[in-house]
Design a protein around this nucleic acid. Structure first.
Lengths: 341, 341
DNA sequence: CTGTTAGCGCCTTCAC
DNA sequence: GTGAAGGCGCTAACAG
């Protein structure tokens, strides 16, 4: 089916120049022990013969793949696409390749993907875990072999490698406090599955803010779901079914918040005066929904870049392994949806 | 820096079982010529010894990389993220890996990425071209070697391999005709750079519909830009500066349309009655903007899946090479933004 | 059904 | 400064 043309090897170049293959190999790698003149000759002939490195042979010898693996829950979210874009930028610049896969929010697929990455001998792994990932046994093999596994955003704290995250507790605490300052007294929280520490931390921040402001925390005012658009509608119906309508909602992501707002608006709930809203992620949707949605902003692209850079630093050995997490900046952006009039 | 543990090879397994390495190799690949019992034994021992395939050695021998390359303009758009998700699904199922990179809309980076893919010996390439890609010389090397290069969405017609696309002319023609049926007489078009055939075709469809309905096409009523959010604002200002305010806008993507609508609303333009809008892509934004934006829907994920499947079929030789394009279905979705009251 | 042999293309000693 | 030799781990003939 596939036609092959003969590939040029270092032997072909060697023959043409009447030198040995070893010298060609050295020349192509800019080895200093080779005469400059020879290096030049080699590289010119290589180019003109259409030589290209066979990375399989090279990797086989050197036992390095020059490849970074990435595993994320889903590729098709605004946030993740930005993260990947950031990773790609850094990694590509450093001459590495990227293998990307998605767990589709299941630990099962995450495990399979990890094995594939492992078998493909990735030099390092960047991971944001699935909803139901409740342990990291599947990464142990890599870690045992000294392959860096760096978690970002949806992290799992472990002592082997640093993690890249934001302070979810603090961000959530601030968002909730802001709602309280606006006069909200009966707060509601839309949470993601709390096996993921990001959502657990956001929940904790929410609860703590309520306690610190001498309000009453009510179990019934927390709705845990997958934070999808569809779930936003369900939350809306649940909210409307409550005996006491909440006056403020803090959602763990924007998508679900926006969908919920839209549903509530259909039932003639006024936002922000009946119910104020704050979301999370600063999704482009937040600036289109009316009223515009207050949210927590943090730079997805920056997170990707930092995670990739940390990984590369380790691979190059230019970094002493820090045991601590790297915490990126996040910021509450206040828009109309949370400003009571 | 990185600690290495000894890797188990097929020789280790062979020694343990007192058989030859070739048999082990065959057994691990489920070769039918090996006794079932032996296969089982091999696989059990392999697992228990912690064996993993060295894909470099395997690839070196078999001259196959088991890797598919993907080059897209940007990763961080809703559309592209969905496409990639579709590709990943199909390709992963077939046991291939994915190398993904983005051209950031420049042909220059696209060329570099292509070379990287080439050097990494991808088995095939899936490409959506950058804005300014005006030839495909950089893919010729791959094509010469028989490596399939399959374009999707932002395609470049060539006879070597099929392309995956939608009928942009027709979709655009329908969208424009719909606006005309709503009573629009002075139509405006927001176009992407027309080096990309998708945008050229959409422009042509727009123009043709106008002519066919005996309206007058006006050069000044076409605004070519990068279809970004920011450009949407510029378009709005341009529109407001026109001597005759258009009464209908067809935009080549949703993002730009939405941004433009938001700007116009600030200047008290009523949508759809002053100006009706139709976008392109069925971005989630369309259902959040008020009024909801009419748009052309086509399944990004499906496009990714189809492109990947076509590629895989070729790699497996299960397909005779079609010389024609594969045209996926698209559909006009009518929402409030284009329904004059 | 299984073993032997050879070599994929590169890089790294070790020699000179 | 350069060459010769060997081996990374696997698989594809070929032979039995």
């Amino acid at each position: 089916m596939i036609k092959k043309e003969k590939e040029i090897t270092i032997y072909d170049i060697a023959k043409k120049l009447n030198i040995s293959a070893s010298t060609v190999s050295r020349g192509l790698n800019n080895d200093l022990t080779v005469k400059k003149e020879t290096v030049k000759k080699i590289q010119i002939v290589a180019k003109q013969m259409g030589y290209r490195l066979n990375s399989f042979a090279s990797n086989l010898r050197s036992k390095k793949s020059n490849t970074i693996g990435v595993i994320v829950p889903r590729l098709n979210s605004n946030f993740m696409a930005d993260v990947i874009a950031g990773i790609e930028k850094v990694v590509n610049n450093a001459g590495y390749n990227l293998i990307i896969s998605q767990s589709l929010e299941t630990m099962k697929k995450e495990i399979i993907n990890t094995e594939t990455m492992f078998n493909n001998r990735v030099d390092g792994l960047l991971v944001s875990t699935a909803y139901d990932t409740d342990n990291i046994e599947h990464f142990k093999e890599l870690i045992k072999k000294g392959i860096p596994v760096i978690f970002f955003d949806r992290i799992f704290e472990h002592t082997d490698w640093p993690t890249i995250k934001i302070d979810n507790f603090k961000a959530s605490y601030e968002a909730t406090s802001h709602l309280i300052q606006q006069g909200c007294k009966n707060l509601f929280h839309i949470s993601g599955y709390q096996t993921a520490s990001v959502y657990l931390d956001r929940f904790k921040g929410f609860k703590q803010a309520i306690n610190d402001h001498n309000l009453i925390f009510n179990e019934a005012n927390v709705f845990v779901n997958d934070l999808s658009e569809k779930s936003g509608e369900e939350v809306a119906h649940y909210i409307l079914s409550l005996p006491n309508l909440p006056d403020g909602v803090f959602s763990s992501n924007d998508l679900c918040a926006v969908s919920c707002m839209q549903s509530l608006k259909k039932f003639n709930i006024k936002i922000p005066n009946d119910i104020a809203f704050v979301g999370f992620n600063n999704d482009p949707l937040t600036k289109v929904i009316e009223p515009n949605l207050s949210t927590i902003d943090y730079k997805a692209s920056e997170m990707g870049e930092v995670a990739a850079q940390v990984l590369l630093n380790h691979l190059n050995g230019t970094n002493i392994k820090p045991t601590h997490s790297i915490i990126l900046r996040s910021e509450l952006i206040i828009r109309a949806s949370s400003l009571k009039v």
